[in-house]
Simulated scan of single mutants.
Amino acid sequence: MKKTRFEAFSDGVLAIIITIMVLEIKVPHGERFSDLKGLIPIFLSYALSFIYIGIYWNNHHHMVSTVNKVTGGILWANLHLLFWLSLIPFATGWIGENHFAAAPMALYGAVLLMAGVAYYILQSLIIKNEGRDSLLAKAIGKDLKGKISPFLYATAIAVSWLNSIVSGIIYVIAALIWLIPDKRIESATRQNKEAGDD
């Protein structure tokens, strides 16, 4: 499979995931701003999930830009990632409808944790396929963010049974860690291109 088709398929699935999430926000019966009050938990859960999907889309795009050859293993690993990401709208809707209750918050964390694991598997397969001296391997380095995130998700899952709001704060912190622009792959790509031009 050509890399462009692989990336286009992934982009399309992520776009559908976002569309499904926004369609879950039902228009209230009423014409006053006060009628929107009941939608606040739903909107907050949507906003957080939108940010997470955006983070995955951004990082997936940069990661795929380093790929020279798409193998069958990479295709299946990518589908594995998309499977977990496709569950985010369900978990998001459950959170919003139940005002950040413990079980929905735990499920949300489990989905995020598994998506993180799936992303790591995809990243590892690409590095294995491209080689330890590949552009992606050099750009990832020690991958501190990738190691911190699963710990945060697991912590948030455990905490959700004690205090679901604190659990939500941990999910926000994990998102903020990734929201800060990560220039590793962009920098490695630029350096590789400059080295090739010399």
Rank of each mutant, 00 (worst) to 15 (best):
H60Y: 03
E31Y: 09
I25P: 08
A91C: 09
G116C: 06
L112F: 11
H62K: 12
G96L: 11
W76K: 07
Y119W: 11
R32P: 00
V70P: 13
V67C: 05
E31G: 15
G109K: 03
I88G: 09
I55C: 11
A91V: 14
K26P: 01
G93A: 08
H61V: 10
K26A: 12
E24H: 08
N78S: 12
V117H: 12
L113F: 15
M114L: 15
M105V: 02
S86C: 10
W94E: 04
I88W: 01
W57F: 11
I20N: 01
I25Q: 02
A102C: 03
M114V: 13
I25G: 07
N59G: 13
L36K: 07
L107S: 06
T19C: 02
F90T: 01
G54E: 11
P104F: 01
H29D: 15
P28C: 01
H60A: 03
L81M: 14
A106S: 14
V27H: 08
H62L: 14
F50T: 09
M21D: 07
H29Y: 10
G72W: 05
H61R: 11
A91M: 09
N68Q: 12
E31K: 12
F33D: 03
A118K: 06
M21V: 03
L113K: 09
W76A: 06
I51M: 15
V67M: 08
N98G: 00
L79T: 11
F43N: 01
P104Y: 00
V22W: 03
W84G: 02
P28Y: 05
S45I: 00
H99G: 04
H99M: 10
L81T: 06
I51R: 05
V27P: 00
P104C: 00
L36S: 10
G30D: 10
G96I: 02
M114W: 14
F43L: 15
